[in-house]
Computed example of a mutant assay.
Amino acid sequence: MPIYQLKDAKPIDVLKTTFGDEVVLEDEESSRTYVLLAEFSLGPNEYAVLAPAEPQKDEAESVFRITRNAAGAPELETILDDEEWETVSEIYDEMTADFD
C-alpha cells in the first residue's frame, strides 16, 4: 500500500447515503447495529469506521473497506492486510485527534 497522509483522505458519504447513520451487519448467527463514525477514500479505496451502537466492555471502533457488489451497491469488507489496516486506522486517528 502506498504511503498516505491525512491530506490524502477525502470525505465520502457512500454508506450514509445508502444506509443512514446506522449500519446493520449480519453473519450466519446474528445481526448487530453499528453507528457510522466516518467514511473516506484513500487513493482508489474507500473506507468506513463503525462503532457498535451498544458497545461491550472495552470494544473499539472497527475499520472496513467499502466495496461494491455486482449491482453496484456498497458492501463492507474486513481489511486483512495488516499494513493497510494500520494505515487507515492511523489516518482516522489523525482525523479525530482534534476532537479528543
Results as ranks from 00 to 15, higher is better:
L80I: 15
K10H: 04
D8M: 07
P44C: 12
M95R: 08
E22P: 04
E59G: 04
R32N: 02
P44S: 10
A9P: 02
V35N: 11
E28V: 00
E61P: 09
L50K: 04
Q5F: 07
T96K: 15
A70T: 09
P74N: 14
E26K: 10
I79C: 09
F19L: 14
K7S: 13
G43E: 09
G72A: 11
A48W: 01
M95K: 12
N45R: 13
V49G: 00
D81S: 07
P52R: 01
P2D: 11
D93A: 15
T87V: 07
I3F: 11
F19P: 03
L36K: 06
R65C: 08
F40A: 00
A60K: 14
T18M: 03
V23S: 01
K16D: 11
Y92K: 02
V23K: 02
V88D: 06
A73L: 15
A38V: 03
A73E: 15
T33N: 06
A48N: 03
A97T: 14
V49M: 03
V14L: 12
V23Y: 06
N69K: 14
S30I: 03
K7I: 06
I91D: 00
M95I: 12
R68W: 07
K16P: 03
T87W: 00
A97Y: 08
E75C: 09
E29M: 03
L25E: 04
Y34R: 00
K57W: 04
D27F: 00
L36C: 07
L76P: 06
E86V: 05
E39A: 03
V14T: 15
V88N: 01
E22Q: 15
S30N: 09
L42R: 00
N69S: 12
A48F: 01
D100T: 13
E46C: 13
A60N: 15
E29Q: 05
I79Y: 04
R32V: 03
L25A: 01
I66Y: 11
D93C: 13
N45S: 11
E86N: 11
A97C: 11
A53Y: 07
F19M: 07
A51I: 09
Y92G: 01
E86Y: 07
E28Q: 06
N69T: 14
Y4I: 04
M1A: 12
G72S: 13
T18R: 09
F64T: 03
V23N: 01
T33F: 00
N45Q: 10
L37E: 10
R68S: 10
R32E: 10
V88Y: 01
M1D: 08
K10F: 02
E84C: 06
P52Q: 03
M1K: 09
D21S: 13
Y47W: 02
S30E: 12
D13W: 02
R68H: 14
L80G: 15
K10T: 08
Y92M: 05
L6G: 03
E59C: 05
T17Q: 10
M1Q: 05
I12F: 04
G72V: 13
F40N: 00
L42M: 04
L37F: 05
E83I: 12
S41N: 07
Y34Q: 00
P52K: 06
W85S: 07
D98E: 15
R65Q: 15
